[in-house]
Amino acid sequence: MSIKVQITKDQIESKDETKVHFIPASVNSNGIIKIDEYFNNYTIEENGVLINALRGYPLKGVEINVPENMQGLILKENEKLQIEESDRVLKFGGKFDKFTYWNYDKNPSENDAYKKALHYIKIAEALHSEIESLDE
C-alpha cells in the first residue's frame, strides 16, 4: 500500500495562509467550527505570552514559525473513499509558515515536546547528508 500526496504547483505557491493552532488536547472529531467568534477573538497577549481558554481550560501560547526551509502543509484525506489495501491519497488542504502553539496552563518553552522533537531535524541532517570525502 502506498500513500500518494497530491499537490499542485499553484497550491504550493499560493499566498493564502491557513491559521493553524496546535492545542494540548485531543479532539475526537472533524468538522467546521466557529473559531473566529469563539476562540480567535479572545486571544490576548500578556508579557509576551498569548492567553486564551478552551472550554474553560487556560491556555498559554506563542507564535512559532515552521523550521527554516520547510513548509507547513495541511493534508486531507477522503475517508469515505478508503478501501482496504488500496492506495491512500492525501490532498492539499492548506499551507502555513507559522502557527500558534498552545500549552495547557504552562508557559511555552524550549522544553515543550514540540520544540524537543524538532532537535531531530538537525540530527537527521548530520546523519544523512552526504559528506565530503574524509581521505585527505
Partner: peptide, 30 residues
C-alpha cells in the same frame, strides 16, 4: 460543537459540562 459555550458560561460548573456531554458535544481530552 467544539468550543461549547460563549464565555458568559462557567465551564467549570458540572451543569455546563454535563449538558455538553449529554447532548453529544465533541469530546476533548486535555
Amino acid at each position: 460543537p467544539l468550543f461549547g459555550y460563549s464565555r458568559i458560561v462557567r465551564f467549570s460548573w458540572s451543569t455546563a459540562s454535563n449538558q455538553l456531554e449529554e447532548n453529544n458535544a465533541v469530546t476533548i481530552e486535555f
